[in-house]
Design a protein around this nucleic acid. Structure first.
Length: 938
RNA sequence: GCGGAUGUGGCGAAAUUGGUAGACGCACUAGACUUAGGAUCUAGCGCCGCGAGGCAUGGGGGUUCGAGUCCCUCCAUCCGCACCA
């Protein structure tokens, strides 16, 4: 008897177990299945439309992924899987931006080779990514630090070196065209985007130049070139930083001071592409803030450049202005203190004062100069310039508000129209001449373009537009100046004094840089004894023993910057194993460009600009099909940390719950967020977390210890890091995926908060339960009801719209609503469950795969076809017209959808409820908005 | 200073783009089933009011029969750029 009973109990337990949502078993089962069957492998398939979804590849840091990283990856994975179900051939790769500073600094500290740490970090990342069920084709994985990859980064560098920018054709061309032109006609006929200081020479001169001279001249034209450049040198890091790696005079990483220093540097002539980088923004669907940042960074301004003679000297001062119309308002000129003219024109009586000012200005660090914007300083040189329009003598000053690096390093000051000039004039008591009749310059400068010109000689009486045109025409006719467009964008520094980066494919022969032949690529990163600069301050690569080209010539010792490898990786994914070229023509033609690119907005003026530049360059050379590589960009928001706090009473070993802390003097103490749930702390876990609290007393509210919270950066020291692995362990990958989407719109930055993940978990359990009854699979083949059909087709429609527009948070809600309804309808009908499983497959791939098989299907749900929704099921035949009286909503009246509006209006008046409200009066007007509302105005 | 974004319950958020604000979820409250509940289910849940009702989308104003949504203005928070002539 006993025995039998036990057996019975056990059986029922086993049966119930089958019906349980055992996510970890499901995960293991399908992970294995996907990998064994190579489910996510992608190849070119001309019969299918392509779709390319890309995430910015991560730098594999030692800390592993935290819960913020996968946000974008989950969204793109959902879209990829959805597009696959819709019949697209989807390219959805992943790789690693594996060169970078942290691995190198770790190497400096420990002697561990960066390749080793990088490899270990990548394995960890890959394991974490695998758990989350992403549908990457891992055969396409790339790593920027892999020689088979950076071979092609070096190859592109060579192409840039061998190119110049022809402004007549408005594209990059091979340097040989230029050399040919030089030997035939000299450089007088060449219209290139090149250095400013190139002397004219003819074909004869060219023939007579030495090889070294020729090389030096060509450097001034090449798209990547070596030059003495003022760079941001960070002594603490021992390296050069780009402008976007410097924040307020300190390095972005580490916050070390940065100084200006002249060094021979490799640069990229990105300025050649300034105009195209700007206009290209109009052709791509990128977030407006990103485009705006890039526009500001490029900083195009249209105006004129003109010369002022220096009185009594054989010299002139070139100025750039966007307001040539105000030329008669010029009452002084200002030079940057660094200007070479300063020495020449300063009069004896002013010399000591000017020298002192120059010395001070040059020595002031960038930081000081920037923090001191409001303070007006300057010095008079004693010299005068002549305004070519009215021959007036105007004093020449120097001041550090004029930047040597922008325009000509000199400005014509119009204090009536420009606030900085105005402040300067007021401070040094210089005249202020209004040039428009309606200018108000009592308190401040008036940059108006309205009104008619006054005090302006030949321009008097004209408006802004006419005055500008007339002035420019005058300049050009008298050969005093020209139309000019200036950009704020500077050429990009391309070298780093570091070890862990791509070596250049360059060696030096008699001081001249020469390229290494394609057949000898890649130039592999050599081994060094230490990852530090040499005693002479040479970069780490100078330490490499026997590292000479052909045993004789020095290689370039700097390495490429972090953005080199990331500027073209999206093309390598198309054909990652190719040994012959960076990607085959066939692959480039088929995949074309990235349809959707996601990543953080912090790369706006870095990676996202440089990669557009390289794309345009490769396009000019005819290697690729597109001029922009990413058609649409989404910025996923940053996930901040949400720290929890306990409140310790000062001087006592006593902690009080949040609501009681006002009664005590307390200090907030970080609590590990992983021992807090819904802001209620697990006290036992806290005693373990803080051993000094073992004996502590806790003052509770309603028997609970409530923690406070604050948004902070996610970091170990704040104990607010939430690790995706732990959540996958506890709830499964499907829950985590859906919860991350449920959290809110992906573009939005927000603190991570695990409160609420249970809701998603319960939902998946309920979905799972739908397929079972009393522990047994229970699927009915009965025809679905109209109501059920309406729910499922409404859902299919909603999900399709949401996924297309990436509003994935509302999709999750829609799934919950649908599943709740099916649960309360006890709906277990195949015709309903089958499309439901396919629809949810992009979101919860593991569970969907499991249920797909519970339904008795073969193969993988990945191969299924997304079900078409049928509008017919969604149509209402009765519409509830809300009726409003005097703008207040009063009642709803049901009418068939196709009832004519005049009939409805008549009916409304006869409705008893309405009659009562109208109270005998007749409405002034009845408005019936089709399909919406009926409005009576009394 | 310039440019951009955001502002809705205790919390994360919805709102068919001008049509019953707060869907969905969390937390909370009550109840059911339970030896138990950190499982499950049912109901309630913006604020004021016993109620009818009134008030509510950062503040103020406007357009409209009707505004979270459009216009003006102010405030707050976040991000980017920062003497760019």
């Amino acid at each position: 008897m006993n025995r039998g009973l036990n057996t019975f109990v056990d059986l029922s337990k086993i049966a119930l177990k089958m019906a349980e949502y055992n996510f970890s078993g499901i995960q293991q089962r399908w992970q294995k299945y996907w990998e064994e069957n190579n489910i996510y492998k992608v190849d070119i398939d001309p019969d299918k439309p392509k779709y390319y979804v890309l995430d910015m590849f991560p730098y594999p840091s030692g800390a592993g992924l935290h819960v913020g990283h996968p946000l974008g990856y989950i969204a793109t994975d959902i879209l990829s899987r959805f597009k696959r179900l819709k019949g697209y051939n989807v390219l959805h790769p992943m790789g690693f931006d594996s060169f970078g500073l942290p691995a190198e600094q770790y190497a400096i500290q420990t002697g561990q080779h960066p390749a080793v740490t990088t490899e270990a970090n990548i394995s960890r990342y890959k394991e974490q990514l695998r758990e989350l069920g992403f549908s990457y084709d891992w055969e396409r994985e790339i790593r920027t630090s892999d020689p088979s990859y950076y071979k092609w980064t070096q190859w592109i560098f060579k192409k840039l070196f061998n190119s110049w920018y022809n402004l007549d054709t408005d594209r990059a061309e091979h340097i040989d065209n230029l050399i040919k032109e030089f030997s035939e006609n000299g450089n007088g006929t060449v219209n290139a985007h090149a250095d400013e200081d190139i002397d004219l020479f003819d074909q004869k001169d060219w023939a007579e130049f030495s090889e070294k001279q020729k090389a030096e001249i060509l450097q001034k034209y090449r798209l990547t070139y070596l030059s003495e450049t003022s760079v941001n040198w960070c002594p603490a890091l021992g390296t050069v930083l780009s402008n976007d790696e410097v924040k307020d005079g300190f390095s972005e990483r580490g916050g070390h001071p940065v100084v200006k220093k002249l060094m021979p540097q490799w640069s990229m002539r990105i300025t050649a592409y300034a105009d195209r980088l700007l206009s290209g923004l109009d052709t791509i669907d990128w977030p407006e803030p990103i485009k705006e940042m890039q526009r500001n960074w490029i900083g195009k301004s249209v105006g004129a450049e003109m010369s002022f003679q220096v009185d009594g000297h054989d010299a002139d001062i070139k100025v750039f202005t966007t307001r040539i119309d105000t030329i008669y308002g010029v009452t002084f000129l200002v030079l940057a203190p660094e200007s070479e003219l300063v020495k020449k024109i300063t009069t004896e009586d002013k010399r000591s004062e000017v020298d002192a000012y120059v010395t001070e200005a040059v020595n002031r660090s960038e930081r000081e100069r920037m923090s001191d914007v409001k303070h007006v300083t300057g010095a008079f040189t004693g010299a005068y310039a002549i305004n070519p329009f009215n021959q007036e003598r105007v004093p020449i000053w120097i001041a550090d508000y004029v930047l040597a690096g922008y325009g000509t390093g000199a400005v014509m000051a119009v204090p009536s129209g420009d606030q900085r000039d105005y402040d300067f004039a007021k401070h040094f008591n210089l005249p202020i001449t209004p040039v428009y009749d309606n200018m108000n310059i009592e308190e401040a400068a008036d940059p108006t373009k309205e009104g008619k010109m006054i005090n302006s000689g030949v321009l008097n009486g004209l408006g802004y537009k006419d005055a500008t045109e007339k002035a420019i025409t005058y300049l050009i006719e008298n050969k005093m100046g020209e139309r000019k467009i200036n950009f704020r964008l500077r050429d990009a520094i391309f070298g780093r004094q570091r070890y862990w980066g791509e070596p250049f494919p360059v060696y030096f022969k008699e001081g001249v840089p020469e390229l290494i032949d394609d057949s000898k690529l890649p130039v592999v990163l050599p081994e060094v004894d230490k990852y530090l600069p040499t005693e002479d301050g040479e970069p780490p690569l100078a330490r490499a023993e026997d590292w000479k080209y052909e045993g004789e010539y020095d290689y370039e010792w700097t390495t490429m910057p972090g953005w080199a490898g990331s500027s073209w990786y999206f093309f390598r994914y198309m054909d990652p194993a190719n040994q012959e070229t960076f990607a085959s023509r066939e692959a480039l033609k088929y995949w074309k460009s990235v349809d959707l690119y996601t990543g953080g907005s912090e790369h706006a003026t870095g990676h996202l600009l440089y990669s557009r530049f390289w794309t345009k360059f490769l396009y000019d050379l005819g290697y690729i099909e597109v001029e922009e590589y990413a058609d649409k960009l989404i910025n996923q928001g940053m996930i901040q940390g949400r720290s929890n706090f306990a409140y310790r009473v000062n001087g006592e070993n006593k902690y009080v719950s949040k609501g009681l802390r006002s009664q005590f003097e307390t200090t907030p103490i970080h609590v590990d967020v992983n021992i807090v749930k819904d802001d209620v702390m697990d006290i036992d876990a806290f005693r373990k977390f803080r051993p000094d609290a073992v004996q502590a007393e806790f003052l509770l509210e309603d028997g609970k210890y409530h923690c406070g919270w604050e948004v902070e950066k996610m970091s170990k020291s704040k104990y607010n890091v939430v690790n995706p692995d732990d959540l996958v362990q506890k709830y499964g990958a499907d829950t985590l995926r859906m919860y991350e989407m449920f959290l809110g719109p992906i573009e939005q930055s927000k603190p991570w908060n695990t409160n609420g993940i249970e809701g998603v978990f319960k939902f998946l359990k309920r979905l799972h339960t739908l397929f079972f009854n009393n522990g047994k699979v229970s699927i009915s083949d009965e025809a679905p009801s109209k109501k059920e059909l309406k729910i499922i087709h409404g859902l299919l429609k909603k999900i399709e719209e949401d996924v297309t527009s990436l509003s994935l948070n509302t999709s999750v809600s829609s799934f919950m609503i649908a599943v709740n309804e099916f649960t309360s309808l006890k709906c277990n009908k195949r015709e309903i469950l089958q499309p439901l499983v396919i629809a949810i497959a992009p979101f919860a791939p593991y569970l969907a795969e499991e249920l797909w098989h519970v339904l008795g299907n073969e193969g993988s749900v990945v191969m299924a076809t997304y079900p078409e929704f049928d509008e017919r099921y969604l149509q209402e035949d009765i519409f509830e017209y809300p009726v409003s009286v005097n703008g207040k909503m009063r009642v709803k009246i049901k009418y068939p959808i196709d009832k004519p509006i005049p009939e409805i209006q008549r009916d409304v008046l006869e409705n008893d409820v309405i009659k009562k409200w109208l109270d005998g009066k007749s409405p002034k007007k009845i408005i019936v908005v089709p399909q919406r509302i009926i409005n009576l105005v009394v």
